[in-house]
Design a protein around this nucleic acid. Sequence first.
DNA 1: TTTACAACCGACCCCTTGGTCGGTTACAAT
DNA 2: ATTGTAACCGACCAAGGGGTCGGTTGTAAA
Lengths: 195, 195
Amino acid sequence: MRDAEQTRQNILEISGDEIHKHGFTATSLSSILKRCKVSKGALYHHFPNKMELGYAVFEEIYTPMFLAMWQPAVEVDDPIEGLCQFFSLMCTESSCDEIVSGCPLNNLCQEMSGIDEGFRLRVLNMQQQLNQLIALNLQRVSAQLRPDIDFSQVAYFIVASFHGSSSLSKSSQNKELFSKVIKELCLYITNLRRN
Amino acid sequence: MRDAEQTRQNILEISGDEIHKHGFTATSLSSILKRCKVSKGALYHHFPNKMELGYAVFEEIYTPMFLAMWQPAVEVDDPIEGLCQFFSLMCTESSCDEIVSGCPLNNLCQEMSGIDEGFRLRVLNMQQQLNQLIALNLQRVSAQLRPDIDFSQVAYFIVASFHGSSSLSKSSQNKELFSKVIKELCLYITNLRRN
DNA sequence: TTTACAACCGACCCCTTGGTCGGTTACAAT
DNA sequence: ATTGTAACCGACCAAGGGGTCGGTTGTAAA
């Protein structure tokens, strides 16, 4: 057989990129097909419809990507420093295009949560996972932190600020605002420590 | 003449609501027409195309709305308290639907900044106005605040966090997460004070 | 070598979209 | 009463969207 799994993976990856750049709705199948050099028949052989393709992208591309990004940042000895380094690295290492495209999770949350229940649930699940990941690891070092901290609340605040900053940079089309907000976010995080 | 200005205003307001709820691209002219009980000819008599209608909504509906909301919150004697009260009021007073629909500015920023330069520039302008509004009013009471504050940076951070929180609540479909993040945001803002 | 079927192809379908345009209607000015 | 024109109407159009389906091709098993 021609390598079916390879074809599927190829479609998935390119779809992930297109959806990241243009959003789910604005991504047309024809644009994916063109980039994949694959026929519509092939796509519909692997996925029953566009929605399911979107779900597959979320589960097989985005989800592992998030975990691969956030876990090492936060499961380190000092999650406070880990988080700050993670965010700072994001400013310095990411290309301008990447930053302007925003966080796929936030993008999909904004675009699809209100329209499609399948996407909403997947986004929500990812957000809760992410939140727990951060909250638990902060709690782990709670001895170093201020005594009055609500870990879940702080974790949500961190993610919200991060998403807000990536949203901001979409209108300015450059990293400047992004790194500005990230700088303040790092200040906030560092400030969680006992003084 | 039939009241042309009234017709125009009606189209503008309903368009503003539809765009707020469904986004610009997903809002179809036919849905606006149906709600307005106005013909397509009438709409195209007042606006040259959909894009220009969108711009008009931004300038004549959203912009005044933002200023009317943020100015009183921040031009008060104590902007720290004003901001906190403003955010808290938003949690308690807004309907669940309103919160889940998100902030029109943030929505448009996310959806349109990358697609259309006209929208991008308008969004950017509004964000800068908002930022200056907050930054200047914080600076005004800088005597009460911590000495090391970068006002513009803090102002952007506040707006980013606010937008991030309204984004979060889209996936949960209720106020809970929103008010959680807002609570932490208020903590952060209060913490700007000299201890 | 034959067979069976997964993998793939692409012309076609229907629907919705933004946008056009020739025509009608109401009203203000003469 | 006539007329000029802003305001409005809605049938129509082309483009592009997602999705279908009968047909072809490659390859592993018999």
